[in-house]
Simulated assay, not measured.
Amino acid sequence: MIDWVHSLAGLLVGLLVGITGVGGGSLMAPILILLVGIVPVTAVGTDLWFAAITKTVGGVVHHHFGKPDWTVVRRLLMGSLPASVLTIALLSKLPRSSFQSDLILSALGVLLIMTAIATLSRRQIHDYARDMQEDTAQRFRRMQLPLTVLAGFILGVLVTLTSVGAGALGATMLIALYPMRMTAARLVGTDIIHAVPLTAVAGLGHLWIGNVDFALLGSLLVGSIPGIIVGSLLSSKLPDRLVRSVLALVLMLVGMKLLVG
């Protein structure tokens, strides 16, 4: 049976995702925890399945138009998938207690603040990385492979633990590592394609632990699909700088709320 409160949460996040492209999805788990009252581990596990399904749809579109950089995707997955499996193994050993919830809430709070900073600083990070690559191009290229695998590993841990990080934070890492290679379309496509298997593996891990509520997931999807459509239509009518600034402010405030309680 559809829970319309949960569907409204999906609608809100769908709107944010449609308007912002990346970053808005970071608010799904916090909304479920703070506004709907879902237990943190269940919010994260269910959000990972939500992300896997919605990003699969986006990934099919980007694959069809040939936008993702498959070399970069493979490098990221070399780090992120093993990291996700290791994180699930560690989570499964932790008792389902207040400690586990506190760990997730703290990690989620810190990550939302980092995502807010990344959302505001993306252009400056791109310019800095581009100038650095021009000065030390050969050395920079030698370091791209190990640094990309490391970035994937970090994202694997963060996404599996909190369900956040595959969007705005992942995109910022790619901009820093590949400032010359990543056009806007290629950046979004690469980020989404990498997120599909990562969120699927993390989601399966949380399902194995018992952290997924499929009734909640269905209600979220009912709301998110029209939300993404409406948000996408609105995005062309809103100034990008204003959207990013408002999103960063909301992410920062929610992150601080999760940290201070």
Rank of each mutant, 00 (worst) to 15 (best):
M1P: 11
M1Y: 15
I2K: 14
I2H: 15
D3M: 03
W4K: 11
H6I: 13
S7Q: 09
S7G: 09
L11D: 11
L12K: 12
V13R: 14
V13N: 13
L16Q: 10
I19P: 03
T20L: 01
V22R: 07
V22H: 06
G23Q: 06
G25C: 05
M28E: 08
I31T: 08
L32D: 07
I33T: 04
L35F: 13
G37T: 05
I38E: 11
V39K: 09
P40V: 04
P40Y: 08
T42R: 04
T46R: 01
D47W: 00
F50P: 02
A51S: 07
A52T: 11
I53D: 13
T54L: 06
T54S: 08
K55Y: 12
T56F: 15
V57M: 10
G59Y: 01
K67V: 05
P68L: 04
D69P: 14
D69S: 15
V73T: 07
L76I: 02
L76P: 02
M78K: 09
M78N: 12
G79V: 01
A83H: 10
I88G: 00
I88N: 01
L90F: 14
S92L: 12
S92A: 15
Q100C: 05
Q100M: 10
S101I: 05
S106C: 13
S106P: 08
A107L: 08
V110H: 07
A116Y: 12
I117L: 12
A118V: 04
L120D: 06
S121I: 08
R122K: 13
R123I: 11
Q124W: 11
Y128L: 04
D131A: 14
M132V: 10
D135S: 12
A137L: 09
R141Y: 15
R142A: 11
M143P: 05
L147P: 01
T148V: 02
T148D: 05
V149R: 02
A151K: 02
A151H: 06
F153G: 01
I154E: 06
L155G: 01
G156S: 09
V157T: 06
L158G: 00
V159W: 08
T160I: 01
G165E: 01
G170E: 05
L174C: 04
A176R: 03
L177M: 01
Y178D: 00
P179A: 07
M180Y: 15
R181Q: 14
R181Y: 13
M182D: 06
T183A: 14
V188D: 13
G189V: 03
H194I: 00
V196C: 04
T199C: 00
A200G: 13
V201F: 00
V201H: 00
G205R: 05
I209L: 10
V212Q: 02
V212M: 03
D213S: 13
D213V: 08
F214I: 11
A215H: 11
A215N: 14
A215R: 12
G218A: 06
L220W: 02
V222R: 07
I228W: 01
L233Q: 10
S236Q: 14
P239M: 10
D240A: 15
R241L: 11
S245D: 14
S245Y: 14
V246T: 01
L247V: 09
L249R: 06
L251A: 12
M252R: 08
M252F: 05
M252N: 05
V254P: 03
M256S: 06
